[in-house]
């Protein structure tokens, strides 16, 4: 198989951010779990509610803090060539997307507070019909990428 997979990876700091997201999620989940435990003690609910309330957050932490972010990062590849952008990502479902430069209409970078703190940015590439994102790139890289894509993208108006 002559697979030409994209080679570039996204920033390693993405891992930190995704883990942080995982922790935030887990924190919210824990609050709910604790509430459930208290309620089931007060109102004498069945024991399995308590057991589930303990197990679910733990599993959540294992999966969404340790397992998935790492896998996700490992699977994320992209490459921007002269005439095309190729993306590949997904843990269980691997998606490989090809976007020709001439189809690109505009490129945006955006960052929320957490991304900004880690000097990361997400880049969104819009065609006339689709939007493709590369998450958590290094800010400088994202800016370069944005500038170069918008320089390379010459949409043939007629083809929209």
């Amino acid at each position: 198989m002559n697979r030409r997979e994209p080679r570039k990876r996204i920033s390693e700091r993405a891992l930190t951010v995704w883990k942080l997201y995982g922790w935030i999620n887990a924190a919210i989940l824990s609050v709910i779990a604790i509430a459930l435990i208290v309620l089931s003690i007060v109102f004498d609910w069945p024991v399995w509610v308590i057991i589930a309330s303990v197990i679910v957050p733990i599993v959540d932490v294992i999966l969404f803090v340790y397992v998935f972010p790492t896998l996700k990062w490992k699977k994320w590849r992209y490459e921007v060539r002269d005439e095309e952008i190729e993306l590949q990502h997904g843990i269980f479902i691997v998606k490989r997307t090809l976007v020709p430069m001439v189809r690109v209409q505009h490129v945006d970078t955006e960052q929320g507070p957490i991304l900004r703190k880690h000097r990361l940015a997400t880049i969104s590439i819009s065609t006339a019909a689709t939007i493709h994102q590369i998450p958590a790139l290094d800010v400088d890289e994202a800016d370069d990428l944005r500038d170069s894509i918008s320089a390379l993208a010459r949409v043939a108006e007629d083809d929209v």
């Binding site: 030409r4 570039k8 005439e83 490989r96 090809l98 020709p100 001439v102 370069d144 990428l145």
Partner: peptide, 25 residues
């Protein structure tokens, strides 16, 4: 996917194996 790849990308792929985005700018 290969059919869809822009022409330039198909022919010059080998030459440009190293041409990643940093060199395009």
């Amino acid at each position: 996917l290969e059919w869809y790849r822009p022409e330039g990308q198909k022919i010059t792929e080998k030459k440009k194996q190293l041409s990643t985005i940093s060199t395009i700018v």
